[in-house]
Amino acid sequence: MKEIIEKAKELLSQGTVDLVIGYEQCGDKQCRPLFVQKPEEADKLVFNEFCVHNLATYLTRPEVKQTKRVAIVAKGCDIRAIVNLIIENQSTREHVYIIGMNCPGVVSGKAPNPTKPHTKCQTCKVRTPQMSDVTLGPTPPESIPMDKTITHPDVEELKKKTREEKWAFWREQLSKCIRCYACRQACPMCYCNRCIVDLNTPQWIDTRSNLRGNLDWNIVRAYHLSGRCIDCGECERVCPANIPLMLLNRTLQEEVKEKFDFESGYDLEACPPLTVFEKDDHENFIR
């Protein structure tokens, strides 16, 4: 992609930014993150359907925070993460130079043989970036309108199960977890300096890989992401045990949409729903 390379060179040589975070090709069907600090290193930058990673996750890393200004190659879905990080005061709009990419969709499935189009792309509302300093790439197919409510078929399927079936399903899925915390590391919204799972006075979550600890860990992670998850699907992609983690996150996204009419990552002025309240919040379970 010539225009990304030119843009990166321009930004670095003019001193607008000290670092460009983008993608480079590695193998036929795989890309990997690339950190460019000198204009001559920018030639490796690419953008194609294998650029799945959500690079916004690096914005909260100390090394990146120390830079004067950082440019980041971001798809619409990645910009949702950047918006959320700014809302949560983890970054500022001035610090990030967003190279927004028009994105026709990325692949899912694991390298070296990714095939399917990514689930998130089928419901994408931001094929043209919603917020950027410069937008590159050919005009993508039309996005789904912003006000459309998305329902995910896999969530619908889960909801149809009985309680016992759900429990059996998650027992089986979560017992595969090896507690590598790849989900946490890949997640742009998981940025606590000390994660609850690493705290030991008191220790809330068993750190051994047994079903109790796995259940606690995955419940806590999903719960902490409620109203914040931006549906990038990175946790599920990096999970070595193939646990359908997005199923939980999407359940909560739909709940947030239904109860609080909120979708995260589209509006810089928005308040995350779990940081505020309405006096007449509706519920039917408190007696």
Binding site: L158, E165, I219, Y223, T251, L252, E255, K259, L274, I286
Partner: peptide
């Protein structure tokens, strides 16, 4: 918090 937490636990069974 509990509105969200209950939604999560419901789907976990």
């Amino acid at each position: 918090k509990y509105i969200m937490f209950r939604a999560l636990l419901t789907q976990l069974g």
